[in-house]
Computed example of a mutant assay.
Amino acid sequence: MEKRRLGRTGLDVTVISFGALPIQRHTMEDAGPVLNAALDAGINFIDTARAYSDSEEKIGQHISSRRSEYYLATKSMSRDKSSMAKDIETSLTNMRTDYIDIYQIHNIKERKDFEAVMAPGGALEALKEAQAAGKIGHIGVTGHSLPLLIEAVKTNEFSTVQVPFNFIETGALDELFPLAESLDVGRIVMKPLGGGQVRSIDLALRFLLEHNITVAIPGMDKVEHIAQNIAPAKKFHPLTIEEKNILKDEAQQIGPNFCRRCGYCMPCAAEIDIPQMFIFHLQYAFYGLKEAIPKRYAAMKAKASACIDCGVCETRCPYDLPIRDRLKQVAQDLG
């Protein structure tokens, strides 16, 4: 598989690599085959986060013995120095390693987050100290707000930037990616398959490979996902006009304001699996699964109608989706 240089880090990473968010849904035992299959397939870059429940622990449990085979990235939501320092130590312990290649500031969503991180006594100070101590190699930043990420990259403090980018969300092409390239900052693409909502996987990944990204990290929680996701990078060929039109039609069906299944809205006080509700509704309303989806929905323990309208989920959503209104629509259509 093709490898690309991850900006000023100098790391040569497989262009399709492993997003570890979904393995938090696995048991500890079941995560092992997926992680090992990724390494067996030649993937050499794994991205996780402190916020992905026990994802770090699963990495440590199952592939720490193969640490020389992959570069490791994680991230923390901590904004102050003390909390970030603790998270770095926790990550090292969880993943059973003494060195993390890239430690990222996770989800810069609002200006107050950015200012807290960059201020004296902020998270960046802890990352620099850990870097000087040899505990981490490089410092990165992630988020969904393009203006804030552009501002962060301009500080020249970060060696990588991680942002959503796919055939529906192309805003990073306008300024962020050209800026990052000019400053030799690695471009890590999250949500390359729209959080699992994209149907045309081969076409969607080939779309990414046509652009000047460094690495895409689709989430994988099944062994079969690995071969499917790396195939476009092993035998790449550009999209045809017909294939571009297929993606255009799919983008119009899904729309720009869709749930990416990141799970940040969870847990729900009413125990609703919010991302799954939206997947069901997309499959029912747009993909025509009028018989199968109502049956699957009926089997759910907590349905959309159980929403208590607390709004906590909306404060967590990095895309500011109107989750409560959408749950009401799901309840109206599916019960």
Rank of each mutant, 00 (worst) to 15 (best):
A49Q: 11
R50V: 08
A51L: 06
Y52Q: 14
D54T: 06
E56P: 02
K58R: 08
I59P: 05
I59W: 01
G60Q: 04
G60I: 04
G60M: 06
G60R: 04
Q61S: 07
Q61Y: 06
Q61T: 08
Q61A: 07
Q61H: 11
H62I: 04
H62T: 06
H62K: 10
H62D: 12
I63M: 01
I63V: 03
S64W: 03
R66S: 04
R67E: 04
R67N: 08
R67T: 10
Y70N: 01
Y71T: 00
Y71I: 00
L72V: 00
K75G: 05
K75W: 12
S76G: 06
M77K: 08
S78Q: 06
R79M: 10
K81Q: 13
S83P: 03
K86Y: 03
K86T: 10
D87Y: 07
D87N: 10
I88C: 09
E89Y: 03
S91Q: 05
S91A: 11
L92P: 14
L92N: 05
T93F: 14
N94S: 13
N94A: 10
R96T: 12
T97S: 02
I100M: 00
I100H: 00
I100V: 02
D101V: 00
Y103T: 07
Y103L: 06
Y103A: 08
Q104W: 01
H106V: 04
I108Y: 15
K109I: 09
E110R: 12
E110G: 13
R111N: 07
K112E: 10
K112P: 00
D113N: 12
D113A: 13
F114Q: 15
E115C: 02
E115F: 05
A116P: 04
M118R: 10
M118K: 11
A119M: 11
G121A: 02
G121P: 01
A123M: 04
L124E: 08
A126C: 05
K128T: 13
K128N: 15
K128R: 15
A130P: 01
A133W: 03
G134S: 07
G134W: 09
G134M: 06
G134A: 08
K135S: 06
K135W: 03
K135C: 06
G137W: 00
G137E: 01
G137N: 05
G137A: 05
G137Q: 03
H138P: 07
I139T: 09
G140R: 01
G140V: 00
G140Q: 01
V141K: 13
T142E: 10
G143M: 01
L146T: 15
L146V: 13
I150E: 14
I150D: 13
I150W: 03
A152K: 04
T155L: 11
N156K: 11
N156L: 04
E157W: 06
E157Q: 09
E157G: 08
F158V: 08
F158C: 12
S159I: 06
S159E: 14
T160L: 11
T160S: 11
V161P: 03
V163Y: 11
V163P: 13
V163A: 15
P164S: 14
P164Q: 13
F165W: 00
F165M: 02
F165V: 00
N166K: 15
N166D: 10
I168T: 05
T170K: 08
T170E: 04
G171N: 07
G171S: 10
A172H: 10
A172N: 13
L173K: 12
L176D: 12
F177L: 12
E181A: 10
D184K: 09
V185F: 01
V185R: 10
V185L: 14
